Amino acid sequence: MIKSFLPEIKHTDSGNFFLIAGPCVVESRENVFEVAEKVIAITEKLKIPYIFKSSFKKANRTKGGSFMGIGDEKALEILAEVKAKFGVPVVTDIHESQDAAFAARYVDILQIPAFLCRQTDLLVAAANTGKVVNVKKGQFLSGEAMKFAVDKIVDAGNKKVMLTDRGNSFGYTDLVVDYRNIPAMKETGVPVIMDCTHSLQQPNQASGVSGGKPELIETIAKAAIAVGADGLFIETHPNPSIAKSDGANMLKLDYLEDLMVKLVRLRQAL
């Protein structure tokens, strides 16, 4: 199904899961291209269908002074460069209805953040661009409830929908993954993805900076494949300790290849 959405995506006949990966936010052209080149080399070697991800801006931050981006158009132009140079599809987040048509000029997939997955105007605006729409499941919703997000997009005339799980709120400062949500969302008939990094966030910390448990990324990914996830979402950075957003739960870029080798083997075994 992902091939029908994104005809340019490679290796869909390999039997592997597809991967959405990249730095959380566009920090610089150098950072984006370093990550893209490394991940593409890995996915080509292992024949994993690949979609590059980075947010052109981060609107949802705990503190008002947190980094939000380098400028909307500048960041989107960098993402368009990735697509043009490497020939891979690109996804970015949108946060307001007016972002949809603007971002759609540069990328292939518009991603709806989890906190905004019930925003009808935003979903419809994304649908109206004709681009693929990836909706992240709200931390406050069941997998079954995501059928209504799919319905909103399909009813607007766009059948190119994907859903991504990123955990459920557990108290005020932690998330847990309920793997029942993956088969529940697959009942909608759209590709289902597991966000292996954001689901390990520890939000609402007193410091105003979210924590995380990146040492469990492999565990989350293995379990997601075991229960039938079509794709995996992993944010990665050469040095998460200095990343400008979500560094506490991102995977260090140097660890990605070893993880992908293990996950491909698991997929083949299943």
Results as ranks from 00 to 15, higher is better:
F5A: 04
I193P: 00
A248E: 09
G15Y: 11
T62K: 12
K74H: 08
R265W: 12
L76N: 00
I153W: 01
L163F: 00
P89R: 08
V35N: 04
G15Q: 12
G189N: 06
P23G: 08
I112K: 04
K137N: 01
K159D: 15
N249G: 03
T219S: 15
L263F: 03
T129A: 07
F170C: 01
K47A: 08
D230Q: 04
L253V: 03
D165C: 10
T62P: 05
L232V: 00
F18L: 08
I109R: 04
N204A: 11
N60P: 12
A21C: 13
V133F: 09
Y172Q: 10
S14H: 11
E77L: 14
E81G: 12
E218N: 14
V90W: 02
K63E: 14
R265G: 15
E34Q: 14
H95G: 07
L79K: 05
L79D: 02
K244E: 01
S28P: 05
D178Q: 10
K47Y: 05
T120G: 09
F18S: 04
G212H: 13
V82R: 06
A125K: 10
V150E: 03
E144N: 14
A149P: 05
D155H: 13
M260V: 01
P183F: 05
K85F: 12
Y172K: 09
Y255P: 07
I2F: 06
F148P: 06
S14V: 05
V135Y: 00
D230K: 11
I234S: 02
F86W: 09
E37Y: 12
L256A: 00
N204M: 12
I153R: 04
L6D: 01
P240F: 04
I94Y: 06
D13Q: 13
F18Y: 14
K53E: 02
D93S: 07
E235W: 04
E187C: 12
